[in-house]
Design a protein around this nucleic acid. Sequence first.
DNA 1: TTCATTTCTTGAACTAGTTCAAGTTTTCCA
DNA 2: TGGAAAACTTGAACTAGTTCAAGAAATGAA
Lengths: 193, 193
Amino acid sequence: MYSLFRESIEKHIHLTDAEFEQFCAPFYLQQVKKKQMLLRAGEVCKFEGFVNKGCFRIYYLDEKGLESVLYFAIEGWWITDIDSFTNQTASILNIEALEDSEVLLITYPYKNALYEELPKVEKLYRIMTQKTHTALQRRMISSISKTADERYLEFIGKYPFMEQRLSQQNLAGYLGISPEFMSKIKKKIAKKR
Amino acid sequence: MYSLFRESIEKHIHLTDAEFEQFCAPFYLQQVKKKQMLLRAGEVCKFEGFVNKGCFRIYYLDEKGLESVLYFAIEGWWITDIDSFTNQTASILNIEALEDSEVLLITYPYKNALYEELPKVEKLYRIMTQKTHTALQRRMISSISKTADERYLEFIGKYPFMEQRLSQQNLAGYLGISPEFMSKIKKKIAKKR
DNA sequence: TTCATTTCTTGAACTAGTTCAAGTTTTCCA
DNA sequence: TGGAAAACTTGAACTAGTTCAAGAAATGAA
């Protein structure tokens, strides 16, 4: 059950069996049904979670009802509102399961205890945050410099198995375009082949 | 000379005088003339730098010659291409001084040595990266959900003293719009007051 | 299996933002 | 301090993307 979890952590730092066990101890498993919300804007984000199975969307809901997707998280990804979790302040994001899912969760006090007990964890999160930051930097550049068509092709090129797991509206919310235009882009691109 | 530097670090972690001295030791001061490039795409980013004086732009240059600004860095900000620096791989970003500036630089081997010598530094960078990541997440959401007018107002609201230090083209490059449209937005907004 | 609900598609009219070109203003530096 | 270069402005014609509305297809719960 912890195999994906361990594998995923070993990509960044090495832990002995004993250390891994110590690392795992404060995490608890939670089953989440499709459409269930793990976090709603306004709440304090009480957890940081590792997706062991399933798929989530982390999104922002504005005054006009528009849902902008910050990212999708499938197996091997982490879900949280970093800002809300690390500062224990009200979240501006929503987290929803898009499939029946399974997550390993840790709460704020336990996470802090982990930093103390196992200093390597500090390094682990430093590296993981740097990586996600780099990826977001690239997406930011695409967002301000590319057309919707280009961003769509970039997305399916980078995450080839994601599209079939997502509704078109969700993908539109990620690319920052209307669902109707998403539909037109797909048609146009399919025609070119 | 190190007062802004120290102040800026103390916001995240506390260091004794001896620790701060140890932290500073591997940094060296460099004067940079306006328009000088500190990093060009294709090079490996050899430094991580703290801006002590002046202003920089970190930008991406695409095939069509379009310059998209990832961020501006004034006094108190850090400049580097995280991806290129941490993995010592070719950079895709450019860093240019927009004013005569002064930076404190550290090289890759010295930075790694610092992580070893002074474990608190791991925490410092973990926190700093989390903060910049949170800020970038918000900008990403604005980028995909707001109009150019709204993003412009958001920028001047958040960084009220920046606009006067930047050319309109640079700001357009940050907002992801053409310089001509930037000009039209400013005119429209000025009229409303 | 059904029918209600949601998701996707399509077209027409619209708005936000781009491109080009020409003129004006500002900056820089010899 | 004058003149070249760069930055900014403006308008006109264009393109990318939105909105609305209506119909078609897919999905889901009883």
